[in-house]
């Protein structure tokens, strides 16, 4: 069985706001083909203030679908529609203390139902803007449709390219066979053939520093690398901040969505890899929270 958090179990076993709201004036109905799940969200919106006065859900779906629906109604009650529209699927998952990667789409379904309900209230037509495919990368919850689109759009050629663009395959690497299959298929449609040894499309020429770096040079270089990586992190709602550099160890704070994310460790490993490529020396990246545990800063800096 899934490793559900206590909050998921609690919302499943004791769902809040189950059932349709009487006199609802905003209704959103969405389904996720990937799980066969479907959700009807009904809201009672105050027509003057646009505050959501009541919310109810009816869900055909698994434990996490029901829990996501339940927690969504709790989150949005009392919000204005504009505030509610800012609720992301990460907010829903975070409120549940996380969901397994295979179940993240349940939180997406919640957010979509909300958008659909608001559109319904405002007399607009809501269109789903993303299509979901088979889950390929379980480490980062990336599906086949997403990978295929990126391969098409960016003319990707290798597994490494796919990892660089989507993160898929950047964790345990067990999905590389599946990613290769997607590459084979798309490349064939494009009239090319898949070559596992092909050069990565975007291998930036990394010129490693030859001379040993002074600490100041090292810090400057590290800042440069982090600045270059920042847009990627921010796209996922996160950020990174350099706190201290002691010897070959860089202490960082992961902030925003990165903070507390199960993937933070892998993100840090990726940053470390990039730093080593650019600096041409061994660099260890450690969360700043571990700084005091690991070293006596005073002693280390004077060593």
């Amino acid at each position: 069985m899934w490793d559900y958090s206590d909050k998921v179990k609690d919302h499943f076993f004791n769902p809040k706001n189950a059932g349709a709201v009487v006199n609802a004036n905003a209704i959103g109905e969405v389904g996720s083909i990937s799980c066969g799940d479907a959700l009807r969200l009904s809201l009672k919106v105050n027509e003057d203030s646009e505050v959501i006065e009541d919310a109810g859900f009816q869900t055909f779906g698994c434990g996490s679908a029901i829990a996501s629906s339940s927690v969504l109604t709790e989150i949005i009650k009392g919000m204005t529609l504009d505030e509610a529209l800012k609720v992301t699927n990460q907010d829903i998952a975070a409120e549940l203390d996380g969901l397994p990667p295979e179940k993240m789409h349940c939180s997406v379904m919640g957010r979509e139902a909300l958008q659909a309900a608001v559109a319904n209230y405002r007399g607009e037509e809501w269109k789903d803007d993303h299509e979901e495919g088979a889950l390929i990368c379980k480490c980062f919850a990336i599906d086949a449709v997403m990978i295929e689109e990126m391969v098409w759009a960016n003319k990707l050629r290798t597994v490494e390219d796919v990892t660089n663009y989507t993160k898929a395959g950047g964790g345990c690497a067990a999905c590389h066979e599946d990613i290769e299959a997607i590459l084979e298929k798309v490349l064939k449609e494009r009239g090319e053939s898949f070559d596992p040894t092909a050069a990565s499309i975007e291998k930036e020429a990394v010129v490693a520093e030859k001379k040993p770096l002074t600490n100041l040079q090292r810090i400057k270089k590290i800042e440069e690398v982090l600045t270059a990586l920042r847009p990627q992190l921010m796209a996922d709602g996160g950020d990174v901040e350099l706190v201290e550099v002691i010897g070959n160890t860089a202490y960082v704070n992961m902030t925003g969505a990165c903070n507390g994310c199960q993937m933070a460790a892998m993100t840090i490993a990726g940053i470390q890899q990039r730093l080593m490529e650019v600096l041409g020396e061994f660099i260890k990246v450690v969360p700043a929270s571990e700084m005091s545990k690991l070293v006596n800063i005073q002693e280390a800096s004077h060593a």
Partner: peptide
């Protein structure tokens, strides 16, 4: 018919 959600 009664419940026809938009499918992702």
């Amino acid at each position: 018919q009664a419940f026809q959600p938009t499918y992702a």
